[in-house]
C-alpha cells in the first residue's frame, strides 16, 4: 500500500529519535570523553617513523583490520535502528554494503582534532603522515578534509546519531528488493532530524548535512579505487591476510 498512513505522530518521532541516539551511543567504538581526554596524546617521532617504515602491504593490512573493526560497530548500530531488522536480509546487506564505510567516515569526525589535524588511531592521535606508507596520500588528505568539514558543523552526538542513520537508510542504493519500505523508514528519519534541528534551533544544518552525502560517496569510491590498485600489486596479501569481512564488503 504505497500510501500507508504511517502514524508519524510527534510521540512516535520522539521515541524514534531517542532509540537512534541510544543505538549510536551503545555502538560507538570510542566514548567522546575518552577521545577528549586523549586528544593531545600524539605519536612520538620514533613511533611515527615506525609506521612510516612499514611496507605498503603491512600498512594496508593494518588499516584494513582497523577499518573492519570500525565497520563491525556500524553493523551493530544498524541492527538497533528501529525497523532495520524488519527489512529483508538482502536489503539489510545492501544498505550496509556501501553505507557501513560511509558511517565509519562520519563517525571518524568524532575522533578528529581540528586544532592539529590529527585522528585517533591505535590509541593515539596522528596526522596524515602516519599513513604515508599506504601510498594513498590523496585519499588520506580527502578523508582528513572531510573530517574537518564535519567537525566544522559541530554536531551534537544526537545529531550525529540521526545523520548516521540517514546515511545508512538510503532508498537509492541499487538492488534493493523493497525500496518502498526503505523509503518509508527514511522518511521518518528525515522527520526526526528536522524535528531535532528545529528543537536545537539549527535548521540550517539540514541542508549542510545532506551536502555531505555526495562527498561521502566519492570518498568510498576512492577507497575502492585504491584497494583495486593495491590488489593488483599484492593479490595474495588481500586474499590470504585481509579480514574476510573487509573483502566481502570492498572487493
Amino acid at each position: 500500500d504505497p500510501y500507508c498512513p504511517y502514524p508519524t505522530s510527534l510521540l512516535h518521532i520522539e521515541e524514534l529519535c531517542d532509540s537512534i541516539v541510544r543505538s549510536h551511543r551503545d555502538t560507538s567504538q570510542f566514548r567522546l570523553e575518552e577521545l577528549q581526554a586523549l586528544r593531545w596524546k600524539l605519536f612520538s617521532r620514533e613511533e611515527l617513523h615506525a609506521y612510516q617504515s612499514k611496507s605498503v602491504d603491512e600498512m594496508w593490512q593494518h588499516c584494513a583490520v582497523r577499518l573492519t573493526e570500525a565497520v563491525q560497530y556500524v553493523v551493530e548500530f544498524a541492527k538497533r535502528i528501529p525497523g532495520f531488522r524488519g527489512l529483508g536480509q538482502n536489503d539489510q546487506i545492501t544498505l550496509l554494503k556501501t553505507g557501513s564505510m560511509e558511517v565509519v567516515l562520519v563517525r571518524m569526525s568524532r575522533c578528529f582534532n581540528t586544532e592539529n589535524s590529527t585522528v585517533f588511531f591505535d590509541g593515539k592521535f596522528g596526522s596524515t603522515e602516519l599513513f604515508k606508507s599506504l601510498g594513498c596520500g590523496d585519499l588520506m588528505v580527502a578523508v582528513f578534509d572531510f573530517a574537518h568539514s564535519v567537525c566544522a558543523l559541530r554536531l551534537t552526538e544526537q545529531q550525529m546519531a540521526l545523520f548516521s542513520s540517514l546515511v545508512l537508510i538510503n532508498p537509492d542504493r541499487p538492488c534493493l528488493e523493497d525500496r518502498g519500505r526503505v523509503h518509508r523508514m527514511r522518511r521518518d528519519l528525515e522527520v526526526c532530524l528536522s524535528h531535532m534541528l528545529r528543537r536545537d534551533n539549527q535548521e540550517s544544518l539540514q541542508h549542510k548535512l545532506y551536502q555531505k552525502v555526495s562527498v561521502l560517496q566519492s570518498l568510498c569510491s576512492l577507497h575502492v579505487e585504491k584497494l583495486h590498485w593495491f590488489s593488483q600489486r599484492y593479490p595474495l596479501i588481500v586474499h590470504s591476510v585481509f579480514p574476510p569481512l573487509y573483502k566481502e564488503l570492498f572487493t
Binding site: K79, R85, P244
Partner: peptide, 16 residues
C-alpha cells in the same frame, strides 16, 4: 546473502 556470509552472520547475531 550467498556472497556476504560473514555480514549475514553478523546480522543474525542477537543485539546483546
Amino acid at each position: 546473502k550467498e556472497k556476504h556470509k560473514i555480514l549475514h552472520r553478523l546480522l543474525q547475531n542477537s543485539t546483546s
